[in-house]
Design a protein around this nucleic acid. Structure first.
Length: 109
DNA sequence: CTCTTGACTGAGG
DNA sequence: GCCTCAGCCAAGA
């Protein structure tokens, strides 16, 4: 957290700070890190985070769609993880997204 | 070095 | 609300 050697490391830390039953977007993380235009890099970091303890399933795109579910093992693993936290997911899209949305800019400011 | 791909986003029609 | 286009930057071929 302190060093923040790599952009990726920051992404991992923020992702780990996401509270239970909450979700955030790639852009929110990127913006919090000062790279608002680098949302793709957040996604790339998540891809590299495979095998780590990063709750990537809590990170979705700005629409609340599980765009990254394809990167998980099963076809519905990501959805199951979210549902396990009380999040309702229909057709790969999070319901009440705005309600459970966790903005690091507001929560961590 | 150049080109393509990608877990994205905002603006414009 | 939807679709399309452009910008963004890192990694791999």
């Amino acid at each position: 957290m302190e060093d923040s050697k790599n952009f990726f490391d920051k992404v991992y830390e923020v992702a780990r700070l996401i509270p239970f039953g909450r979700v955030t977007s790639y852009g929110a993380i990127a913006k919090y890190l000062g790279a608002a235009r680098s949302a793709r890099m957040v996604g790339w970091a998540m891809n590299n985070s495979s095998g780590k303890e990063v709750p990537a399933h809590r990170v979705v795109n700005r629409k609340g769609i599980l765009t990254g579910k394809h990167h998980f093992e099963g076809t519905n693993l990501m959805q199951q993880l979210l549902e396990s936290e009380g999040i309702v997911v229909i057709e790969n899209q999070i319901q009440d997204f705005e309600t459970i949305f966790w903005d690091p800019m507001k929560e961590l400011s």
